[in-house]
Structure formats: structure tokens, C-alpha cells
Nucleic acid binder design. Structure first.
Lengths: 336, 336
DNA sequence: TACTCCTATCTAAACGTTTCGATCATGAGC
DNA sequence: GCTCATGATCGAAACGTTTAGATAGGAGTA
């Protein structure tokens, strides 16, 4: 920029004013500076700019698992919207581990991101603690953290799962296994409540044997499902609280020599793009990933532009039960 | 840092020396500075540091599509390795679009990333042009670009596909449809050559009618497969050159009222974690994602640490044909 | 003793921007 | 003809580090 200024015979202040449009520049100098820039091939140094302005035009995006199609779908739309708005996105994964989460957020904070979009993992207190250091806008997605007053966009998990379980009950299922995500997350808790609600509403006892924790991972879910499948009184249906876990459930079913849906019905949270073309066609709760991403981006952009201190806003969206063929009507075999 | 220095009664130079370990500091000052840092809660400003040193400790990672499980698997391991080495990773998606690719790379270059890992999209010349601006280490993954002399880690696509097609031919298939990726990419070209090789080797004519371009996207592949499925003389098998496309192929097969593998065999590049639990269990070519990610990370770390100008190195890995149940033996119906 | 060589520390100049306040025409309003 | 706002430009001080070179005390050596 020094070179540009020298070549155009002006001060750096004028060059800066022209580039940023922060002050009027005469047509004559506008021309001179423009060709100096072109001649030199000048590109402004973003780092120096950030140092001076305190803004990096970068948003940190923290998710649990980049391997989870739900997250990647959301990430794709967030990246799209934010890039269009002139922001870069720095993506980090926590692997569902609070320690890693703390580390990753620290890393982003060190790099002076302007804002943070987080799908929190695990323990709320850890998140609270690390976020205390940050006086930048934060929006929570997918999961929320009670202690943190931040914008958020979440699903009505409870209602969505309740609807799915209602559907299973409507098909005649009475013993419905439930593979839960981590109860350290709001999604884990919300979805489980939906399950309990539905049972209670149908006057069914909620047997604790039927609820297993799968921590949102395929492997854990496999083990959890296995425990369900060796029960003396087999459940006739299993609901899995997310997409990764349902694969584990299906593997367990296969390994036990059972078939879905003939022997056991299966349904899960989160949809797959291939769900209606590979058998069994899974009945799932589809999340509005597009809307989630758009709302999250919009919330953070709002905070970023208009520093007005409005109270945190929480956007709650609805899941959509997508009925396919992995659940069969069940008539209780005569027993007892 | 000024405050820390003041509080400890030393110069900023000493504080910096201690933090970076660039010069010896006496135990006494070490102690004083340490407690000053703790008292103030000092965190060094990465931006200022970057401005001075010219290094951001950040690697740009450019992929075509974050929605593609192959890429996300690779990204996961790259992030893991690089984070462990003290680098942050900035992930960008090009959406298979050379214009976006140029834009994203520019963005990363503007932000002064220390190195670039790229899975190139489309036209080589565009990439060449934008990379000319960068005098930082670059490693290409998945796809390579002829004009660019950079480290790379790729698959022996030709051989992998040839093996898969050999397998189909061995099952008795003679008319094998091929859904290709974009021929602007080395993977698109390499995989297609593998197909041609296999046919030629078996003395089968390569009918151009049987080859359709799907551009690595589900939607394009659906249309391409449709064209195959309305041919008067139906192919008895279809090979899809990547994972996204095979879903489009399966949808087309379903929409035409056909069944896989009963009516038509299907195989594809790239494996799925759910492939052996949902029907039809796809026969695929699995890529060594772990190795790809590790090699790519290692190559860039090497360049970054040891500025020795060694010639570009190209690492070629092998795919693994994973035979499941989506391909059936085919005996030619009597015809003509 | 005088010389060099360490070790530990400091001073001050970068790095490449942005931005505040100053300067100085110019023209309008009175 | 005076003041005043306005528009265009500039000088120089930040922003928070790193680092080259200076300094100073002491130990080892001839």
C-alpha cells in the first residue's frame, strides 16, 4: 500500500479511503490510485487490517462431528450464506468431547473470530466457562445450554419424537426400545422426554430396561441395541435418537439374525438422502436443515451488524415425520 | 503484553522471549513474568503475531462438496492431524465450480494461510492461474492438475475401476453402463480409462451410448442413468464413478420400476458406512480415507517445517474392491 | 591486564493497515 | 470582506507483536 501510494503520488490515508470508501476521493486520484493498484498488483493485507480494526471477517463454526450428514448439511448452508455476506468460516469439530470443545473454541477466540456458531457438546458448565472469555456474538444451534443466554435455533425435539412414538404406538407397538443420545445435551434430553411423553400419554409403562444410551455414535448405539436385543422380552420396535446411531442399530439387528421390519420395526431421528432408495426404507424425522442454517446465519449477521443489545432470541423449528417402510403394524403375540 | 511487561517490571522483549522460548530468561524473571501473565489473564494476540511473523498457523483446505462423505472422512483426519501439529484448518467448499474455487482460494490467500490442501474442481488452467499468486506449499488430494507441480496424494483410479469392471465382466455382464464424473477432473478421466481398459482387455466394444456424464452429482447422475435405462438394449449393469451419483442411479432404477440386483447390477466408486446393512448391499470401491488424510497432512507439514526445495512428490494409493450383493451373475438372454 | 565470549536483558524499529485531527482550498451566506 | 461549512487530502499515531542490534556484567583465557 505504501508502494501504491508512492506510485500514485498520494498518501496511504487516501488509498485507504478509496479502498474502503470511507471518505470521498476526487475522480482524478481515484483514477491514479486505481491504475497504481493494477500496475503493482496490490492486495490489501487482511492481517494488518484485522490488527487495526479488531475484526477478522471470520466466523467460527463448531460442530460435534463432521462425519454426521446432519451437521454437514447445516454447515453447507451456513457457509453459503456467510460467504455471500463477506465472511469466511472456520470450521472445527469437537468429536462430542467437552475438552476438545474448549480447546477448539479457545483456538477460534485466539484467532479473533468475529462471531461463533456452536452446536455444543457435553457439559454445559465447560461451555459456559470458555464462553465467558468471549464478548462476541454467539449463536447456538441444534443444542442449547441452559446457563448461556445466547441466540439459538433448535428443534422441538420433544414434540417430534413424541409424534414418531405415537405413530409406533398407533401401529400396535407396546414395547418400544429407545437408543438415546448423551443426556448431557439438550437434544438428548428433549428427545427422551418425547419418548416418555408418548408412552405416558398412551398409558404405557416406561420400562427403564428399554432405554439405552448410545451417545450419538454408531459404535455405542450398536452396543446399546445389542443389550436391547438380548432381553428375554424383545422390543417390537426401536427408535434411535439420531442418524449415526440408527446404523449401529441396524447392524445389531442384522448381527442378531433379525430382519427389519419383519421382526422388528425401526425409526430414527434425522433423515438420509438415500433413505427412500435403500431397504429397509427408514421412517425418520427429517430436520429442516436449510432453515436451521439460514436462521443461524441470520442471527449472527444481525448481531454483527447491529450492535443493539436485544435480548437473546430462540428460534424453535419443527421436525417432519417421514413415514416409509421400516415400521410394520404389530399385533401382540399371545403371551402370558 | 505491554501490561504484563509493566507489571513484571521488564521489557516486552523479555516477555516475548519467554513466551516463545526464543532466548534464555533467568528463573527469577521467568517467575515474575509468569505470575504477571496469570494475574492479568494475558493471551497473546495471534493477529499481531501473524502480522509480524508472516505466519498464521492456519492451513486452507479446499474441497468440492462438504456433503460428500468421502470428503468429510478425509477432512476429519486432516483436521485431526493438523490440529495436533498446532495448525488451525480453514475449510472451504467449491461446489465443483471453478469460479467458486478461485474465489475461495483467493479468500484463503488473503487471509495468509501458511499452506493449502486442495481437491481441485474443474478446469486446470483456472487453478493454475490462481495458484500462481501463492508462494506457499500446496498439496493436491484426490484429483491432480497436470499443469501444477505440487505434492499430491491420489488413488490409482484407473486400476481400481478396471478391477471393478473386470469383476462385472467375470459375472457375465457384457453391456455395462458407466456414469462418469466430470472429465475436467483427473479422477473423472482416470476412472473412465479404467472402464475402457477393462472392456478392451475383454475384447468388448466400448459403446459410447453406454457412457454418460454425471458430473459427480446425484441429480445429474439420475438423468444420466435415466438415459441408460430407456435404451432399447438395456445394460445389465451400471457402474457409477462416485458415491453421490450411485444414489441417483438407484433412484433412476427404482423410478423405472426395475430392481437391483435382480434386473440390473450396480457398483460404484466410494464406500458407505451403511453399505453392508441396507439393501441392496452395494459392491463398491473403498478408498483408504485415513491414509489419504494422513499423507496429505504429512506432506504439507514437511514442506512447512523443512523449507528444503525437494521436487514435488506424488503418492499413489490403491482402492479396495468390496464385493457385496448388488451385482448378480448375468447370462445373456437369447437374442438376435 | 586486556581480550573475547557468554548470558541476560533492553531499546526501538519494524509488520501493513486504519483513523483522528489538521490543513487548505472553495464557495456560500450574511 | 468576513465567517463557516464542505470536500479533499495528508501526517502521524496507533494496533500488539517480534526481532535485530545494543548494552552490560561476568567468566574464561592468554
Amino acid at each position: 500500500m505504501l508502494d501504491v501510494a508512492a506510485k500514485a503520488g498520494v498518501s496511504t490515508a487516501t488509498v485507504s479511503a478509496l479502498i474502503n470508501g470511507t471518505a470521498p476521493v476526487s475522480p482524478e486520484l481515484r483514477e491514479r490510485i486505481g491504475s497504481a493498484i493494477a500496475a503493482i498488483g496490490y492486495k490489501r493485507n487482511t492481517i494488518a487490517r484485522s490488527l487495526k480494526t479488531g475484526a477478522t471477517n471470520t466466523i467460527g463454526l463448531v460442530i460435534a462431528d463432521i462425519t454426521n450428514p446432519f451437521f454437514t448439511d447445516v454447515v453447507a448452508v451456513i457457509q453459503d450464506v456467510l460467504h455471500r455476506a463477506g465472511y469466511a468460516v472456520m470450521l472445527c469439530c469437537t468429536d462430542e468431547d467437552p475438552d476438545q470443545q474448549e480447546e477448539q473454541i479457545s483456538l477460534l477466540l485466539d484467532r479473533m473470530v468475529d462471531g461463533l456458531i456452536i452446536a455444543p457438546a457435553g457439559d454445559d458448565h465447560a461451555l459456559e466457562r470458555v464462553l465467558k472469555r468471549a464478548d462476541i456474538p454467539v449463536v447456538l444451534i441444534d443444542r442449547i445450554s441452559n446457563g448461556i443466554a445466547a441466540d439459538a435455533v433448535v428443534l422441538d425435539n420433544q414434540r417430534a419424537v413424541r409424534e414418531a412414538i405415537d405413530y409406533l404406538i398407533g401401529l400396535g407397538h407396546r414395547r418400544i426400545g429407545y437408543i438415546s443420545g448423551s443426556l448431557d445435551t439438550s437434544t438428548g434430553r428433549g428427545r427422551l422426554s418425547g419418548y416418555r411423553d408418548a408412552l405416558e400419554n398412551a398409558n404405557l409403562a416406561c420400562e427403564e430396561d428399554l432405554v439405552r444410551i448410545g451417545n450419538f455414535r454408531e459404535r455405542d448405539a450398536y452396543n446399546a441395541a445389542m443389550q436391547l436385543l438380548v432381553l428375554p422380552d424383545l422390543p417390537s420396535a426401536i427408535f434411535s435418537a439420531n442418524n449415526l446411531m440408527v446404523i449401529g442399530v441396524m447392524k445389531a439387528i442384522r448381527d442378531m439374525g433379525l430382519r427389519c421390519p419383519e421382526d422388528i420395526s425401526v425409526s430414527s431421528f434425522d433423515d438420509f438422502p438415500w433413505a427412500d432408495v435403500f431397504q429397509p426404507n427408514l421412517t425418520t424425522i427429517a430436520q429442516p436443515v436449510q432453515a436451521i442454517g439460514e436462521h443461524a446465519s441470520q442471527l449472527i449477521l444481525d448481531r454483527l451488524s447491529n450492535r443493539a443489545e436485544r435480548p437473546p432470541r430462540q428460534i424453535v423449528l419443527a421436525g417432519r415425520l417421514t413415514i416409509r417402510e421400516s415400521c410394520r403394524p404389530f399385533s401382540r403375540p399371545d403371551k402370558n
